[in-house]
Design a protein around this nucleic acid. Structure first.
Length: 187
DNA sequence: CCCTGATTCGC
DNA sequence: GCGAATCAGG
C-alpha cells in the first residue's frame, strides 16, 4: 500500500495531534514507523514545534488503565472491525459516572454468560458489585460502550522536550569538580 | 528492554 | 519517493 492522498492527510493530522510515529503507523496500517518518519521528513513536517506538547487530553479511568495491556493486544490485531473500534475510541470521552445497569440485566461472576459484557461495576467488596452483562462485541470482552471505554489509545508519553536548540553549554560555568565521563566510547 | 525521532542510502 | 537499517537517545 502506498501514500495515497487520504493516507497522507491522515498522517498529517495525526502527526499534528502529537501521536508518535509508531502510533500513526498502527492506525494507518501496512506501514512501519520508519515509513511514517521517512514520510514526515519528506513532507517537511518534522520537528515538532513548541506548541505540540504531547497532550493526553483523554481522561482515563482506573479501570481503563488496568485494561491497557489488553487493549494493546487488540490494537495490534489484524481484524479491521476490532481495529476500527479501537480507533474510534479516540473520540470517546469517559463519562463521570458509571452506566446504570438495570438490575435484571446485571450479572454476577456466577451468572456471567459467554456473551456477557465483563465490565465490572461497583465495589467488589459489596453485594452491589456486578458486571455489565449486556451483549458483548464479538472478539472483545465488553459491550460496545465499555469496549470504547477500555480500549483507548495509548496515552502519548508526556515529556517536555528539553532537547532542541540548547547548544550554549559552552557558556555555562564549569562545575567545581567535573565528573569525568569515560562512558563515551565507541569503536 | 521498552520506546522516541533522525539519518542514510540502496532500491 | 520510499523505507529498512541504523543511530542516538529517554
Amino acid at each position: 500500500m502506498s501514500w495515497t492522498d487520504e493516507r497522507v492527510d491522515l498522517l498529517k493530522r495525526l502527526w499534528s495531534e502529537g501521536l508518535s510515529a509508531s502510533q500513526i503507523a498502527g492506525r494507518l496500517g501496512s506501514v512501519t514507523r520508519n515509513a511514517v518518519i521517512g514520510k514526515v521528513h519528506r513532507l517537511g513536517l518534522s520537528g515538532r514545534a513548541t506548541t505540540s506538547r504531547m497532550k493526553s487530553h483523554r481522561p482515563r479511568t482506573r479501570l481503563a488503565n488496568a485494561k491497557r495491556p489488553v487493549k494493546q493486544r487488540f490494537a495490534q490485531t489484524g481484524n479491521p472491525a476490532v481495529r476500527a473500534l479501537y480507533i474510534d475510541a479516540e473520540a470517546y470521552v469517559a463519562p463521570a459516572e458509571e452506566i446504570e445497569i438495570p438490575v435484571a440485566e446485571r450479572k454476577t461472576i456466577q451468572t456471567l454468560g459467554e456473551c456477557s459484557c465483563r465490565w465490572p461495576i461497583g465495589d467488589p467488596q459489596t453485594s452491589e458489585f456486578h458486571f455489565c452483562g449486556r451483549a458483548k462485541v464479538p472478539l472483545l470482552p465488553y459491550c460496545e460502550v465499555h469496549a470504547r471505554r477500555a480500549f483507548q489509545p495509548v496515552a502519548p508519553r508526556r515529556r517536555e522536550r528539553t532537547d532542541i536548540e540548547t547548544p550554549v553549554t559552552a557558556s555555562l560555568p564549569a562545575p567545581a569538580i567535573a565528573g569525568s565521563d569515560p562512558s563515551k566510547q565507541r569503536a
